[in-house]
């Protein structure tokens, strides 16, 4: 039973994940290279280097804009075509938060990851809460708390980017462009700060390798699902049972 695998990601959502990752990586590096101002740039050599790599600053800008349009356009098409199948269930899942259970998860998981199990048990005993880490659904609440601002941030980044592109081809109010630049930068910074944790938790943290592998294969081992996403596994089992039991009844 333990070696059984469970379907977790569709091929298309795996593709969109890596499409997003590659675009983000490219756009982050080129975008950082577009900020060339002594008062704003923390790595003054980076824009010079990027401009050399791309041959000229205008090529760098054009590349950033082109990939940005591909990124936003890709998600727009995906969002429209798979609105019912993938977008709605995804949004419903990330917005489903059960506050007592999930806040306890954040506390216990946080202590366990940073200080370890023995410390968690001691602290739980001292403050009188359950040291067991509550079960989680398809996503744990940490993933949900990253997913929600990432989706909203993505929309903000795409819109402000679009305004900046539009500014070069039609008259956009100067204030709108000026604020778009700042909001674009701030949003990317905040989502990237969360992205660092996402990358650590998914690709580096111990015990999470099956999650990373599932972003290629689409499946996770059953014991991993049981350990990390028990409520989701229970749901699958319940629906499997619901599908099979009437057949058995008839047979």
């Amino acid at each position: 039973m333990a070696h059984q695998t469970i379907h977790r990601h569709t091929r298309l959502s795996i593709f969109m994940h890596w499409f997003n990752a590659v675009c983000w990586f490219f756009l982050l590096l080129t975008g950082l290279g577009l900020i060339r101002n002594d008062a704003l740039q923390v790595f003054p050599a980076w824009p010079l280097w990027m401009r050399s790599v791309f041959g000229s600053p205008e090529t760098l800008l054009l590349s950033h804009e082109t990939v940005g349009i591909i990124w936003a356009g890709g998600f727009l098409i995906y969002g429209i075509l798979l609105f019912r199948q993938e977008v709605i269930p995804f949004i419903r899942e990330i917005l489903t938060v059960e506050i007592p259970r999930d806040s306890l998860w954040l506390i216990t998981k946080g202590i366990q990851m940073t200080l370890g199990y023995p410390a968690l048990e001691k602290i739980a005993e001292k403050f009188g809460f359950d040291s067991r880490i509550p079960d989680q659904g398809f996503y744990n609440v940490g993933q949900k708390l990253f997913a929600i601002p990432s989706i909203l941030g993505g929309v903000v980044i795409a819109l402000t980017g679009f305004i900046m592109i539009l500014s070069q081809y039609g008259t956009v109010a100067a204030e709108l462009v000026q604020w778009s630049i700042v909001i674009h930068f701030i949003t990317v910074g905040l989502v990237f700060a969360g992205l660092l944790i996402h990358i650590f938790m998914a690709a580096i943290a111990k015990g999470e390798q099956p999650a990373l592998i599932s972003m290629f294969t689409g499946t996770v081992p059953e014991d991993y699902a049981h350990h990390h996403h028990k409520l989701w596994l229970d749901e699958i089992r319940a629906s499997d049972a619901a599908e099979t039991s009437p057949a058995q009844g008839n047979g």
């Binding site: 600053p57 205008e58 800008l61 054009l62 500014s167 070069q168 100067a174 462009v177 000026q178």
Partner: peptide, 10 residues
């Protein structure tokens, strides 16, 4: 550089 400027007007 009018190909890098996006006309933000800072």
């Amino acid at each position: 550089n009018d190909r890098l400027c996006i006309g933000c007007g800072y």
